[in-house]
Design a binder for these strands. Sequence first.
DNA 1: CAGCGCCCCTGCCCGC
DNA 2: TGCGGGCAGGGGCGCT
Length: 271
Amino acid sequence: MPELPEVVVTLRGVSPHILGKQVASVSVREPRLRWPVTEGLSSLLVGQTLLEGRQRGKYMLFRFASGHLMIHLGMSGNLRIVTVGTPVGKHDHVDINFVDGTVLRYSDPRRFGTIQWLEGLPEEHPLLHHLGPEPFDDGFCGDYLYRLSRGRKVPVKQFIMDSKVVVGVGNIYANESLFHAGIRPTLGVGKVSRVRYVELVEQVKRVLASAIEQGGTTLRDFVGGDGKPGYFKQQLYVYGRAGEPCLKCGALLKEIRQGQRSTVYCPDCQR
DNA sequence: CAGCGCCCCTGCCCGC
DNA sequence: TGCGGGCAGGGGCGCT
């Protein structure tokens, strides 16, 4: 589920409940995630105080004095705040228990996520090392995409979903951004003009920002319950609407597959 | 190096 | 109602 907006909103949602608090214990009920949960996580964390929570792409980074706890939600993960003694569900794989009884609970049915302890600089970690700019960075601009794309042939949709190009643009928002920019997802990147990249970047930023904004209001429930925090179904123009009429021009939206993922576009608005 | 296809896993939805 | 197949929003890896 989580695309960048969900990650950002999750981080904002859980942070106030755990920042500045000391870890009392850690339980890892299921270490077999995408990569196994760091061995001995408990002894690495216990006694340390959470100093900061931030995000790099879809990775969340929680800073402690001696390192960072890195959490990725994969496709089906979520984080929420519960209290000690809250019954454990089938997919509640990891708990970080704080001394005041607050629990940061990680849940992930498909186990595509990851929880790793990092020593040293997070940006030097192999999983973060090659990441491109954040979508809201000034460095992510039309000119950047234009220069990076010259001489290449990848379809523009795969290009903007490549984390070496820019982080945080997942399938849904790639579809949506391309729609709003009027660019056909299959178009080879080398053929896209500079002005069109300027437009695309603008749309990526706008679409992500509005999803985050929407999430901030829809999704305040990180606390308590067995809550799946329920992902925000904001207004999507193309994703999940194959065969339905385009909301701008009425033409029927088309669906194709690119890199094992579904692409939906308007054959009239996107060229 | 660029560009593909594969695969980790469970849940859910659809059609029979 | 039960069951099998296909599909899901991530993303690294290994092969050509």
